[in-house]
Design a protein around this nucleic acid. Structure first.
Lengths: 242, 242
DNA sequence: ACAAAAGTGTTGACTATACACCCATGG
DNA sequence: CCATGGGTGTATAGTCAACACTTTTGT
């Protein structure tokens, strides 16, 4: 079965998603590895169907890759310089072309379509990393989370895309109260703080941070969380959606 | 001569520009009027050539419409819902079709190309309104400035585009110090304040405003401006670019 | 001298940050 | 009762808006 029907999509326009997750004090980004003769890393992406809105397309792509519906996502920038095409990758693609066509993954129409210059709409998404089971496509060799500070070299301008996405995330984290999308349903104040420290890559004073977050009036305090550690048990909080 | 060669451009992808100008205490937007059997207003827009970057395309479109090079511009959002097409306008277009084809303005290939669903990249631009002499295209009946608060009804989602552009402008005016692009080379502090009041649609306290702006350290104070009015002559300022 | 508007200084409220202290928990 | 980390209170500095006052200009 052919990987995709290029007739169904708008030409020369793509969507690339920077999916942010948070775990082990690190802000992470989902990237997949494609093995040709060399291996390449890439952001999850896709195309826009003719009858589909761009937000809808991004949602569909995210659902395909993460299995999640109702993901928080936002477009943040369009990447459309004419030199975006990555010559290296395309040369590699040429090398594996016959093999992949034989496998039926791609056909000539696909390859011609992919070879054109693309304008890509950048979306970023925030997910609870525990709820995600990354889905491989036929082309992917692996799909995994990478620390945003130690990303591998991605194809085309995808590293730059992550940079702009992080900038947009930092701008919006406070303003739009979206950070809680990166945390599980309930969490401690320390976890919120550590998340903020990972995003902004700088420390925050504990007491002032607590005051600032509580003053937002968007958290409800639940029962205490007894961890077994020999210290005061922290409260759990939940984000109030309205 | 045919208006445009649809072969030269990326399909189903357009650019629309919200060009802001400032005059007579009002923030203004450039819109052109197209006369079919009814008349429609529209934002200046265009398409992206195959070998051209999107920022470059926006620059070209702006230069065509304003005669200015080196305009400050920024992309702020993509509009890509599938129901963007304006049925009314397309029906009107069908009515004048034969006439326009006869005139040689459009041909069938053009019309088929235009009839598809488009995704549009929104740019906003800031110009010194005194330097602009709006250029009509063959299709335009008029090109004029309209108060952003009293815009006519524009085609498709162009009114919504202006709304988002204004929001983006407000967010960036302070942060990126871009407001001075709307003013002439030299200006008084009062003029800066009136500009801000027009953009944010609210008054600012005179003394505090002056302090805030001067503390940015981006203005150099020049000679005084004697207007002939019976009051203290205000200083002229110039924006320091570096 | 006067009206109009520009420029500057001072005050008080609010906010953000730093410092200090007490409390709960399990060993 | 001690070490550890959680929760809260207070003082200080820095920022922002309101008020007051002085200066310059042409009539």
């Amino acid at each position: 079965m052919k990987l995709f029907d290029e007739q169904a999509f708008i030409h020369q326009l793509s969507i690339d998603c920077v999916i942010f997750g948070y775990k082990d004090l690190e802000l992470k980004v989902l990237a997949s590895q494609i093995n040709m003769s060399r291996s390449f890393w890439t952001l999850p992406g896709g195309f826009i169907k003719h009858e589909e809105g761009i937000d809808g397309a991004a949602k569909r792509i995210l659902e395909e890759r993460t299995g999640l519906k109702d993901i928080y996502l936002e477009q943040y920038r369009v990447f459309g310089e004419p030199d975006r095409v990555n010559r290296e990758v395309f040369e590699e693609l040429a090398e594996v072309r016959d093999e992949w066509v034989a496998k039926g993954i791609l056909d000539d129409a696909n390859i011609g379509w992919l070879g054109k210059r693309f304008v890509s709409i950048g979306y970023y998404a925030l997910v609870d990393i525990n709820k995600v089971s990354p889905q491989k496509t036929e082309l992917d060799d692996s799909v995994d989370w990478y620390n945003v500070k130690e990303l591998p070299t991605l194809i085309m301008d995808h590293n730059e895309m992550v940079g702009y996405a992080l900038e947009a995330l930092r701008q919006n984290l406070d303003q739009k109260l979206i950070g809680f999308n990166l945390l599980p349903e309930t969490f401690t104040m320390r976890e919120v703080q550590e998340l903020y420290e990972a995003v902004y890559d700088r420390p925050f004073a504990r007491n002032n941070f607590q005051k600032k977050i509580l003053d937002l009036n968007v958290l409800e305090r639940l029962e205490k969380k007894f961890t077994g550690a020999q210290n005061k048990a922290p409260y759990l909080y939940r984000f109030r959606r309205e």
